[in-house]
Design a protein around this nucleic acid. Sequence first.
DNA 1: AAACAACCTGAGTTCAGTTCAGTTTGACTG
DNA 2: CAGTCAAACTGAACTGAACTCAGGTTGTTT
Lengths: 208, 208
Amino acid sequence: MARARIVDPEEGPRSKRGAILVAAVERFGEDGYENTKWSEVADRVGIGQTALYHYFESKAHCLLTIMRLELQRSHDMFVEATAGETEPVEELRVAVRAAFAVSDQEIRQMRILQANMSLLANPRKSKREETERVAARQLVQMVERDWTSLLMRGMAKGAFPVRDAHTLGLGVLGMIVSVWRWYRPTGAIALPEISEMIEGCVVRMIAE
Amino acid sequence: MARARIVDPEEGPRSKRGAILVAAVERFGEDGYENTKWSEVADRVGIGQTALYHYFESKAHCLLTIMRLELQRSHDMFVEATAGETEPVEELRVAVRAAFAVSDQEIRQMRILQANMSLLANPRKSKREETERVAARQLVQMVERDWTSLLMRGMAKGAFPVRDAHTLGLGVLGMIVSVWRWYRPTGAIALPEISEMIEGCVVRMIAE
DNA sequence: AAACAACCTGAGTTCAGTTCAGTTTGACTG
DNA sequence: CAGTCAAACTGAACTGAACTCAGGTTGTTT
């Protein structure tokens, strides 16, 4: 499985593209996209603002790239986690666990993704931005299909009661991703606890 | 119950405040906040752009007002719907139904609220904006408490298995509000069907 | 009809994002 | 090891949408 890494090995040795993405994830993740100046990202990387345009067409293009990479990762993790599983309830469980098995940087990326999801709705004027947007949209649909097809398989096998798999899948996904809105690593409740709680909820919701 | 109306009866007869809010809800709801020009709202109301500043300190102040009003409405509806109910499972059911008993304009307001939720995280520079932000934040906490205390009452009565009511409440709320990200009145599935589906999910999640 | 507050406007300002017209850097070639 | 080239970068200028300012208009009240 080719993981979606923020540092692309295809780049030249002098390239700061990866460093820009890492800095942008930090800033966008902490203060939010609108709240962070594009020039602050440049400062953090240690280059002038205009050098950013050597790597990204715009601030939005950088954001869309971050979102696309995170969606790719989410999809890949889902596929990897559920690959060997044939028992529907267990497949459901590992899928939920995979969704919460993330690093601190990935938490920030999920937060950025959730906070700016609506950016994917409207077309972009520039070509490269639009390419990233369309790719991200397709990945959103792919992740949705990951969940709905898991549910449909379980229903076909008789392990889950038959219900509208699409709406149900969106509900499960909605509950899972809503965590990234409020979860902070320094908060009162730890991620493994949340993961267990949600896992139980999802199983009761789907399998009973 | 004093409902949070977009047209405030306290205003002068010449005031266009309500008309601005209605126009802003339409534009922000359809194209998104960032994607709509503040001047387009003025055009729609039929006034010059600068006249907007007679009613709102800024574009963000208008958005925050819309969000606060919608949160107030959500809270009020929850309280109104669950007021007479004593049986925990039925209380849970009516709360979910109330969350989906909304007009088309309220759907747009929910969409705006969900899409711009992260705006409530960071302080605002201007005073009136900050007042609205803090009020909105408090209402978010109030709505969260509405759900968690409903769950805690049910657990205390032995109607629901005892679990972490706060995390569980946020999960339920997350699943419900995630609907406003993708639901469109013209879509393939109708709101009453979604409402029923979610109601069932929530009951299984909580009461089993 | 005078006074006044609410309501509105055109011209100008600001500032983050972006473009432009080049300059520097360093890897590779002959 | 000098020359070449693309990748990487820069300071100065531009853009456009949000916003400010210094007043003008409207309608209500007494």
